[in-house]
Amino acid sequence: MRNYFQVILSIFVLVGISVKSMAQSPTPGDVVPAPKYLLLDKGLQYRVTKAINSMYDFDFPTAERDFAVIMYQYPNHPLPDFLMALGYWWRIEVDVTNTRFDNIFIQYLERANDKAEELLDQDPTNKEAAFFLAAGYGFMGRLYSERKSWTKATFAGRNALKYMEMSRGEEEFNPELLLGDALFNYFSVWIPENYPLLRPVVALFPKGNKQLGLQQLETVASNAFYTRVEAMYFLFRLYASEEKKPYEALRISEYLHGKFPNNPYFHRSYARHLYSVGRWTESVEQSMEILNRIQNKQYGYESNSGRFAAFYIAEYHNRVGNKSEAKKYYLQTVAYGEESESQESGYYLHALIQLGKMATAEKNKPLAKKYFDTVKRYAKRKHPAHKEARDFIKKNKL
């Protein structure tokens, strides 16, 4: 979690639901009356599965052509607008600091929510409508928390929780709804463990179970039809950071990169997890491929991914004693960090520290001091990088 406000919202916000269904359909152009629960229409599976796979693989034009046909055929159903929003979410996820897709993402979610509310007005027992409202508000909450719009995020999160409860009761939706239960079970325990001041807030909710939450995420990742990829996304993040199970994180990220090789988020996560388990040469290979794709301007590959990739390559060369190559890629890490405005990130700060040490070894104290002063400027005082910079400056009289 990036900060404790987002930790609070993890309780309220049902993660966005990635819908993965739809197949042989009527002739494009025919407006088709939607069945009561479109998501459970097995006859539509193939086409939407193909479109969603294209979306996760960052082939958005192909995916959106299929989504547009569905929108034409089912103009009053929230599914196609929600799918369009999902595509924009993954554009955002690659670099969450970039806000250029925020407005269109929210517009599609609002359209999907409006259509779901109309369905619910017509039939208050419509579980699918509640399902989409839970997903739509959940995604809104995720974006608003990234943007530090706490009032909007909390409102969206509470609505997501409300509609999640309303959508219960349809047995075939259960594997999808389990994702929300899994995250609640995990974070309702994780939050008070890591943020004692928030214990009174968490005490207002039912008691969770972290291990059960992980088991439920694994169940969703293995059995769900609509939320499978999103469950995997959360699993590898939790395994990599909170659970300290790097091989489990690698297992999932390797599968996702193999399944969706052009998704830059899964690609850099795979490189990261290879690095974390000591498979450094493989991490370097993947990282070089990321840098090549940035150089070739492949869609979705940008400075944020470059910062990760350049750092792993630099660290490898530093470990094997190839200082000139290490320096080259640490400098790239810094350049990509500045381009993506990620100066407070650990990779950016650590790269500067290594460059400062190299400059000191080269007897270039003014340059070394410049690097360490930059660390002090961007790192919070309690950050380990800030302390290391202060100590090095003092010890070496920079």
Results as ranks from 00 to 15, higher is better:
4 Y>L: 11
6 Q>T: 07
7 V>G: 15
10 S>D: 14
11 I>T: 14
16 G>P: 11
17 I>G: 09
19 V>P: 12
19 V>Q: 13
21 S>R: 08
21 S>D: 12
22 M>R: 02
23 A>D: 05
23 A>E: 09
24 Q>L: 09
25 S>G: 13
27 T>D: 14
27 T>W: 09
28 P>I: 11
28 P>G: 12
28 P>L: 11
29 G>E: 11
31 V>T: 14
35 P>H: 00
38 L>A: 12
43 G>D: 12
54 S>E: 13
54 S>G: 12
59 D>W: 00
64 E>D: 13
68 A>V: 06
69 V>Q: 15
76 N>C: 10
82 F>S: 04
82 F>T: 02
85 A>K: 07
88 Y>C: 04
91 R>T: 09
92 I>S: 01
94 V>A: 06
95 D>K: 06
98 N>Y: 14
98 N>Q: 15
98 N>T: 12
100 R>C: 07
106 I>E: 12
107 Q>T: 05
107 Q>N: 06
109 L>C: 07
111 R>P: 06
118 E>A: 10
120 L>I: 03
128 E>A: 14
132 F>W: 01
135 A>K: 10
135 A>I: 02
138 G>S: 04
143 L>N: 08
143 L>C: 15
146 E>N: 14
149 S>W: 15
154 T>V: 04
158 R>P: 01
161 L>P: 02
161 L>D: 03
161 L>M: 14
165 E>P: 02
167 S>I: 02
169 G>I: 04
175 P>S: 02
176 E>G: 07
184 F>E: 02
187 F>K: 01
187 F>Q: 03
187 F>S: 11
191 I>Q: 04
192 P>R: 05
192 P>S: 02
195 Y>Q: 09
196 P>N: 06
199 R>S: 15
203 A>Y: 11
205 F>V: 04
210 K>W: 13
212 L>S: 08
216 Q>W: 13
221 A>L: 01
225 F>M: 02
225 F>D: 06
226 Y>S: 01
228 R>Y: 00
232 M>Y: 09
236 F>L: 07
238 L>F: 11
238 L>A: 05
239 Y>A: 00
243 E>D: 08
247 Y>N: 13
248 E>A: 03
249 A>V: 01
250 L>Q: 07
253 S>D: 11
254 E>R: 15
259 K>P: 01
262 N>F: 10
264 P>T: 13
266 F>Y: 14
268 R>Y: 00
278 G>V: 03
278 G>K: 15
281 T>C: 05
282 E>V: 02
283 S>D: 01
284 V>K: 00
292 N>M: 13
293 R>V: 04
294 I>E: 01
295 Q>W: 09
295 Q>M: 04
301 Y>C: 03
302 E>R: 13
305 S>M: 01
306 G>C: 12
308 F>G: 07
316 Y>C: 07
321 G>N: 12
324 S>Q: 15
324 S>C: 05
333 T>V: 05
334 V>Q: 02
336 Y>E: 06
336 Y>D: 05
337 G>P: 10
346 G>Y: 14
346 G>N: 15
346 G>L: 12
348 Y>C: 11
349 L>G: 08
351 A>R: 06
354 Q>W: 11
354 Q>H: 11
355 L>G: 10
356 G>H: 08
357 K>S: 05
358 M>H: 13
362 E>Y: 10
377 R>H: 02
380 K>I: 07
380 K>M: 06
382 K>I: 00
383 H>S: 05
383 H>G: 00
387 K>I: 06
387 K>C: 03
389 A>C: 12
390 R>C: 15
391 D>K: 07
391 D>A: 02
393 I>V: 08
398 L>I: 01
